[in-house]
Design a protein around this nucleic acid. Sequence first.
DNA 1: TAGTTTGTTCGAAATTTATCGAATTACTTT
DNA 2: AAAGTAATTCGATAAATTTCGAACAAACTA
Lengths: 104, 104
Amino acid sequence: MTKHTEIQQPLRDEISLSKVLHALSDPVRMEIILKIARAGQVACGAFDIPMPKSTLSHHFKVLRESGVVASRREGNELINSLRSEDLEARFPGVLDAIIAAGSR
Amino acid sequence: MTKHTEIQQPLRDEISLSKVLHALSDPVRMEIILKIARAGQVACGAFDIPMPKSTLSHHFKVLRESGVVASRREGNELINSLRSEDLEARFPGVLDAIIAAGSR
DNA sequence: TAGTTTGTTCGAAATTTATCGAATTACTTT
DNA sequence: AAAGTAATTCGATAAATTTCGAACAAACTA
């Protein structure tokens, strides 16, 4: 039987624009976001970013706490997805425009 | 006769998404941007933000160097405007969406 | 020219953020 | 139960950012 643990993340209404923009203002985190945007769902381990795991983990934490990324545990890995619906509801067009801009 | 000095700002193609997002991720700078967006043109002195002049000047510098704001001298004061066209050309929809989100 | 207004620059201190290795937690597999 | 895999947390350090007062610069005004 597979256990699914909940990960702490802000509620939709608690998501702050400043924190979202700060989260996305780092090139490493933007790279992460773009990959998730393309693939839909990506495990933390699937990023071949040349960087210690602890540093990468820090960036995921920032993305999660800002409300940009949702992570859920599946087995022994964490699956990351964008909180597109929440972000679209709260800040319409922002995430899409940034992803499009970052993809060029 | 009024002298108009040019202020250093990145060229359109040199504007970086990360720097723009970082510039906009600060609440004080967002407040500045929103006021400029509403008014079109605002002098540095027209912001009644309770903060030393040097600190405010720092925030204007960040906004200028990121390519978000253009400043030109008119007589004694600096007039600030958004680089909406440059930003729209480079990162379509980003600035508008962020301003709309920040205005709510 | 002296004084005033507007805003920047400088230099230092405080705060925040990023980085990394080691230890730890959660879960799976053997 | 022991070992392996995935990722986080801890603690320390490094780097970047923010803040502020004091000094400076540019342009106007009396």
